[in-house]
Amino acid sequence: MKNYILLIIGFVISTGVYAQGEWIVPADKKGKLSTVTFSSSMEKLGADIFKNNCVSCHGTPGQNNPIPLMPSPGDPAGSKFSDNTDGELYYKIQEGRVTMPSFKSALSATDTWNVIAYIRSFHKGYKQEVAAKVETNIPEGATLAMDLSYDADAKKVFVKVIANNEGEQIPVAGVDVKIVAKRYFGQLPIGEPKATDGNGIANIDWNDELPGDSIGNVALTASFVDTENYGDLTVAKDLKIAVATNKPALNAERAMWNTVKKAPLWILFSYLGGVITVWFFIIYVALSLKKIFALGKDEVSDEEQVIY
């Protein structure tokens, strides 16, 4: 009991201190910067994300109408937010704390930067610092393009990355790409991520026993591994490279999860069999009662008297 009380007190104190104390972001996370300059299109995307995920608690930026929680979520236009570095905002949104949810699994790196771009658009006097570029052969200002193809002989899927610099096509080398296949729920990673070679091509092993749809199509999507530096560029393609599988729909056949009309026969028979057997005897007994009633008209001879 004593321990229990101590535990409760400890818990109350720790949560109290934890919730009201300053939100410390680890030093190595503070300095994190976006690799791209915030643009109006990023702000627009960020505004959408904010509307869907944040307004419910933080209210509309600039209106100072967050919901009354302890500690307060704060108005994103206010100094509570603007005093943060970009890295601190990034960390706080991703990790969360107590009532501030963690958005790690809900928002990608790009989404998070978009929402930060949106928040920053309310902060006067904010000047963005952009992260130094990593070493690549991509010329400044070039747009990237990605393509997906299949080589039947080599049994490999090729992902080609090209930088388009004012009409000039430059193969992008040394960038990690990955592919995933669409399945019933979610995505199936295919092989390991690979770096592009001097021709801008990454080849990823393909297992041609993978089941596809009814004609052998499989929906592949290629993307960069390091989306923070290279962006959310993806390429999706339906390739006829998997085994054609004609699985009936999950509700096509008799199954436990189906409607009563498509119940498994064994369960139908067991249930009905049990019910019919038991009720057969119940009805038999009811009919006996009727017979007993009918016998009431018969005379009982002295010989037959039960009570003596």
Binding site: L289, F293, L295, G296, V300, V306, I307
Partner: peptide, 12 residues
């Protein structure tokens, strides 16, 4: 049920 203590009733 018109019970008359008939032995047949008892049997049923």
């Amino acid at each position: 049920f018109k019970w008359t203590h008939h032995p047949k009733q008892y049997k049923l």
